[in-house]
């Protein structure tokens, strides 16, 4: 049984570690297109996979956020990765499995997954 007491425990644990995560402005952002086109194409499980993987690896300075229609509806689900100081990378036709690879290869090991990028989409 899930209880509200567990939520209180999470609060107390988070309060203990809250000062570890301040420079959030400086971090990497992963943005998921969540308009009708993205949702219909499967963006919801992609977003959940990204959030789970960031939590599982305890990546502190990564922000996963949502946006509307990115403008290439036929290539959804689309995610965009913004690493400070680098050019934006756009990944298309994502799946939860591909999203996990983007985290491990691009975010953690700093090697963008070329085969999933928009520039490779129609080759």
């Amino acid at each position: 049984m899930k209880s509200l007491a567990e939520l209180e425990a999470i609060r107390n644990k988070t309060l203990g570690s809250i000062n570890l995560r301040n420079d959030r402005e400086e971090g990497t952002r992963i943005v998921v297109g969540m308009a009708t086109c993205g949702i219909a194409a499967g963006a919801r499980p992609v977003l959940s996979a990204l959030v789970d993987e960031v939590a599982k690896r305890d990546l502190k300075d990564i922000i996963v956020s949502q946006t509307g229609c990115i403008g290439m509806c036929r290539l959804e689900p689309i995610i965009e990765v913004y690493v400070p100081g680098k050019e934006k990378v756009t990944y298309v036709r994502m799946s939860p499995e591909k999203a996990v690879r983007v985290i491990s290869e691009h975010i953690v090991n700093n090697r963008p997954v070329k085969e999933f990028t928009v520039s490779e989409a129609d080759k």
Partner: peptide, 12 residues
């Protein structure tokens, strides 16, 4: 005051 969108809270 703890963020509602933190990973632990979202999972809970």
């Amino acid at each position: 005051g703890v963020a509602i969108d933190g990973p632990d809270v979202i999972k809970w």
